[in-house]
């Protein structure tokens, strides 16, 4: 599954989808939307047991920082199943971009 991110046409720096103006450039440069592969590796993770209202019904869930293979670092939830071994450097792939990014172990 592809993931939509942003790239600065001037300096080529990549950002998540919420960055519409490049912070690294001196000029006020609008970033452009590009699609990259939704694969990456886990940089760090936590299993969350106490969550705000909108996530209460899915606890415990895994939260992770993911280094996209072709893009920036990002935060996402992990969809896991029985027997999954969540660990640093484990390869993951995007499952859904709706209501916050969701990845699963590859």
């Amino acid at each position: 599954m592809q993931i939509s991110i942003r790239r600065c046409p001037s300096c080529s720096q990549k950002y998540l989808d919420d960055v519409d103006l490049c912070p690294a450039c001196l000029q006020v440069t609008p970033t452009e939307r590009i699609e990259v592969g939704g694969t990456g590796k886990i940089y760090s993770f936590s299993r969350v047991h106490v969550a705000p209202e909108q996530f209460k019904n899915i606890v415990p869930y895994y939260l992770a920082i993911i280094d996209l293979d072709e893009g920036p670092r990002m935060m996402a939830r992990l969809q896991t199943q029985e027997g999954d071994h969540v660990r640093i450097d484990a390869p993951v792939e995007l499952v859904s971009s709706e209501d916050g990014y969701l990845f699963a172990l590859k």
Binding site: F45, S46, V50, Y61, A64, I65, G100, Y101
Partner: peptide, 19 residues
């Protein structure tokens, strides 16, 4: 990019602890 994904303050410091 953080709260909407499911991050809370304890979980962000937990990520630091894990690493």
């Amino acid at each position: 990019t953080e709260a909407k994904v499911g991050a809370t303050f304890p979980s962000m410091f937990a990520l630091m602890a894990t690493r």
